[in-house]
């Protein structure tokens, strides 16, 4: 049993949830929205802080942080550390956050090979050059799952985790139940 995040009198203010997309495809965020009308129940219990859903850019103190995507560039590292510093509970959501996922397939190649293939040698490229604007975050040499950068409290596998997985996880967590996924909710694809 975890400690319930809402006490029995319901007197705690709404739980604060933040979400971040790092190096992913936004599929996990779409899957969260796929809980459909249950979102109305969810907003009774939680309030969203920084998230692409609210478009709030700066994170405050949060109860739960949901991270989609792996760590592929220096911005991802900064965002992830900021989330860890501000969230009591940090959750790796989806294959990319859990093990690097499809973006980590580039780990088979050197960064130079990746950039050259994308911007110089690829088919149909005009004005071949590797972009070097200072605004563009520097790529890391490898894409990492988030637990290789910060401590992670919970993992939600799936590409993406289904809406039911999100729902089961969030309701169990909020109600202080042990997170115990049935067979149908554990998958890596």
């Amino acid at each position: 049993m975890n400690k319930p995040l809402v006490n029995e009198y319901g007197s705690k203010e709404k739980l604060i949830v933040a979400t971040a997309p790092l190096c992913g495809c936004f599929g996990c965020h779409m899957s969260l929205l796929d809980i459909d009308e249950r979102i109305l129940q969810l907003v009774e219990l939680v309030e969203f802080d920084r998230s692409p859903i609210t478009d709030i850019k700066d994170i405050g103190k949060c109860d739960i942080g949901l991270i989609e995507g792996g760590v592929a560039n220096v911005h991802n590292v900064e965002d992830l550390r900021e989330f860890r510093n501000n969230c009591d509970i940090l959750v790796a959501v989806g294959a990319c956050a859990v093990n690097g996922g499809v973006p980590a397939m580039r780990n088979q190649f050197d960064i130079k090979e990746c950039l050259e293939e994308a911007y110089i040698l690829g088919i149909g490229i005009e004005n071949p050059h590797v972009p070097n604007d200072v605004e563009i975050p520097l790529l890391l040499d490898k894409v990492h799952p988030i637990h290789e950068v910060v401590r992670v409290d919970y993992f939600l596998p799936g590409c993406p985790p289904s809406a039911d997985t999100f729902w089961k996880f969030l309701t169990d967590l909020i109600n202080g139940n042990t997170i115990d996924f049935p067979y149908s909710l554990i998958h890596y694809d």
């Binding site: 859990v98 088979q108 993992f155 596998p157 554990i186 890596y188």
Partner: peptide
């Protein structure tokens, strides 16, 4: 491999990945 991991209830690889070049 996946099926046994599901059966065991493995939610993450937990360790640091080698990402070997294969």
């Amino acid at each position: 491999l996946q099926a046994v991991a599901y059966y065991i209830g493995m939610l993450s690889p937990h360790l640091t990945h080698f990402f070997p070049k294969r």
